[in-house]
Amino acid sequence: MAIEGAIGVALVDYESGMSLGTLGGGHDLDLEVAGAGNTEVVRAKVRTLESLAIDDSIEDILITLRGQYHLIRLMDRGHGRLFLYLALGRERANLALARHRLRRIESELSV
């Protein structure tokens, strides 16, 4: 939540769609619902890469709304497939810096 413009963040298991932890959010952003919904986005993109026989992995996915950025950073650790989900207010966010900080958080995160 120290990332400029952060509204909320979640760590989500995209095999089950369950959030393993959340911070922020509130009545304007239900992080449990957002995490489950973005699970479908991740699954669809993974299936698309497989269908196209693209032998590569997804680093992150950006969804741009009028007032927000939603950044999904995939992690591949242990037995589960996880992603970090970060919602940012566009008026205060620096997208490049947020992506950099999220990458660093991922590298330091112990799951």
Rank of each mutant, 00 (worst) to 15 (best):
L88I: 10
A96C: 14
L71G: 05
H70T: 09
A98C: 11
A87S: 12
Y85P: 06
R77L: 05
A98G: 12
L84H: 02
R81N: 11
L102R: 08
G78Q: 03
I72C: 07
A98R: 01
L86D: 14
G78S: 11
L97Y: 03
L74M: 07
E91C: 07
F83C: 05
R99F: 07
G89T: 06
L84C: 14
L74V: 06
H70R: 12
R92L: 14
R101V: 07
D76E: 04
L84K: 07
R92G: 06
L74Q: 13
N94W: 00
H70N: 10
H79E: 06
H100G: 10
R90Y: 09
L86V: 08
R81P: 12
G80F: 14
D76G: 10
R77V: 13
G80L: 08
G89M: 06
R92N: 15
L86Y: 02
L95V: 14
A93Q: 08
R81S: 12
L86W: 02
L88F: 01
R77N: 11
R101A: 02
L84D: 08
G89F: 05
Y85N: 15
Y85T: 09
L102M: 12
H70E: 11
G89E: 15
G89Q: 03
R101C: 02
R92S: 13
A98L: 02
L82T: 03
I72K: 00
Y85Q: 14
L95A: 01
L102P: 10
A93C: 09
H79S: 09
R73C: 00
H79R: 13
Y69I: 00
R101M: 04
H70M: 02
G80Q: 08
L97A: 04
R90K: 14
A93S: 07
D76M: 06
R81I: 05
Q68T: 01
H70I: 01
L102E: 01
R90Q: 04
F83L: 06
R81Y: 10
F83R: 09
I72M: 08
R81M: 12
R77S: 02
D76K: 15
L95E: 06
A98I: 07
D76L: 06
L102K: 03
L88N: 00
N94S: 14
L84W: 01
R90F: 04
I72G: 06
M75F: 00
L95D: 11
A96G: 15
A98W: 03
E91P: 02
H100L: 15
L86A: 01
L88Y: 04
E91N: 14
L84R: 02
A96N: 10
G89K: 09
L88H: 04
L102A: 15
Y69A: 00
L97P: 00
A96S: 14
A96D: 12
L86I: 01
A87P: 10
M75P: 08
R99I: 03
G80E: 11
R92H: 15
G78Y: 13
A96H: 07
R99G: 13
Y85L: 15
L82V: 02
R77W: 05
I72T: 05
R81T: 03
L95T: 05
L82M: 15
H100V: 09
R73G: 04
G89S: 15
G80T: 12
G78W: 05
A96M: 13
H70Y: 05
